[in-house]
Each structure stands twice: as structure tokens, then as C-alpha cells.
Simulated assay, not measured.
Amino acid sequence: MGSFSPAGTADGSKRVASVDSLRCFAMTAVVAQHCGLMPFGWTGVWLFFVISGFVVTLAVIERPTDRPPLERLRGFFRRRTIRIVPVYYAYVGVGILASLAAGASVDLFDLLSLLGFYHNVAMGLGRGQLSDWPVAHLWTISVEMQFYLVYGTVLVLASRRTVIAILFASSLPPLS
């Protein structure tokens, strides 16, 4: 079985070339789905979620554990926030401005679902739209942020044994 050999980057993070290759396949599948070239390209989204789980787990277990757990958790959330929120909020902000410039009103619930990362819930309720600006694809960011909140907290604060038990239990097929 091969081993992972992460390469350091300028920001101190480690990249795994084989995982970057999987990201390429996932992105290609999603783009092909949206272009009508691959009807099962949605699998790329699921692959992105799996990659995210792997990368987050690797990042957390490779960090030193000499700091208090809550300090490590704050650092975890800070890194995720810095990586996602600025670009995401800029995109949503441009969408709000475009909608308002087009004379459309912006529904407060829909806006809060985007800003609060529960856009997937709003879409499930048939809501979460901005007039004249595409936001339907942003449900994936909401799911990712919810994942970081739940899994990141468990991963940083729970014992390794508990994390392994949760991962094992979550991989079992549902009882029918």
C-alpha cells in the first residue's frame, strides 16, 4: 500500500498530490454535469465532501496538541473562516448589490440563510433565492460549514477513541 507524502506550501500547510488529483476529478465531474456532458457529475460534489473530511482530519491530527482544546478549536475555526468566508461573502455581497440594482427586493430570511450558512435548509423549504443572482450552488458551502462546526468540534475536543467510534458508527449502513 502506498504512503502519503505531503509537500509543504508557502503558508505552512501540507498538500497531498493524490488528493489534489481527486479534487481535479471532482471539479471536472461537477463542471461536466453543469454543461450537460455527464449526468452523474453530481458525484463530484460527494467526492469533494469526502476530500474535505480527509483533509480536515489530517490537518487536525497533525497539529501539536500542547495547547488547550478550546484554543485549538478556536484556531481550527479561524483557519476555516479565513479560507472560506471572505470570498463567499464577497460573492453574496455582489449578488445583493446586483439584485438591488435590478430593482428587486432581498428577502431577510433568504439573506440570513446565505450569511448564516443554512442556505441548504432554506432551499429545502423552497426558499433561499436572490433575484437575478445565482446562489443555488451555495448549499454546498452551507453543508461544508455545518460539517466543520460539528465534526471539527468533535475531532478537536473528543478523545481519539471517541472519534474513531463515531467514524466507524457513521460508516455502517442504516438498519432497515
Rank of each mutant, 00 (worst) to 15 (best):
M1G: 14
M1I: 09
M1V: 10
S5I: 11
A7Q: 11
G8R: 11
A10F: 09
A10M: 11
A10E: 12
G12S: 15
S13H: 12
S13E: 11
S18W: 14
S21N: 08
L22A: 15
M27D: 00
A29T: 00
V30P: 10
A32R: 10
C35H: 04
G36W: 12
G36Q: 06
L37I: 12
L37A: 15
G41S: 14
W42A: 14
T43D: 02
T43N: 08
V45G: 06
V50R: 02
I51K: 10
I51L: 15
F54E: 01
F54G: 05
V55N: 05
T57K: 01
I61Q: 14
E62N: 07
P64H: 11
T65Y: 06
P69S: 05
E71N: 09
E71I: 04
G75M: 04
T81C: 08
T81G: 13
V85F: 11
V87K: 03
V87S: 10
Y91H: 13
S99N: 02
S99T: 09
L100C: 10
L100F: 10
A101G: 07
G103F: 09
G103P: 06
G103A: 09
S105K: 10
S105E: 13
V106C: 10
L108I: 14
L112P: 09
V121D: 00
A122F: 08
A122V: 05
L125P: 03
A136F: 10
W139Y: 12
W139G: 11
V143G: 03
M145S: 02
Q146S: 09
V150M: 08
V150P: 01
T153H: 02
T153P: 04
V154F: 04
V156L: 07
R160A: 15
R161Q: 12
L167T: 02
S170N: 00
L172G: 09
L175I: 14
S176E: 05
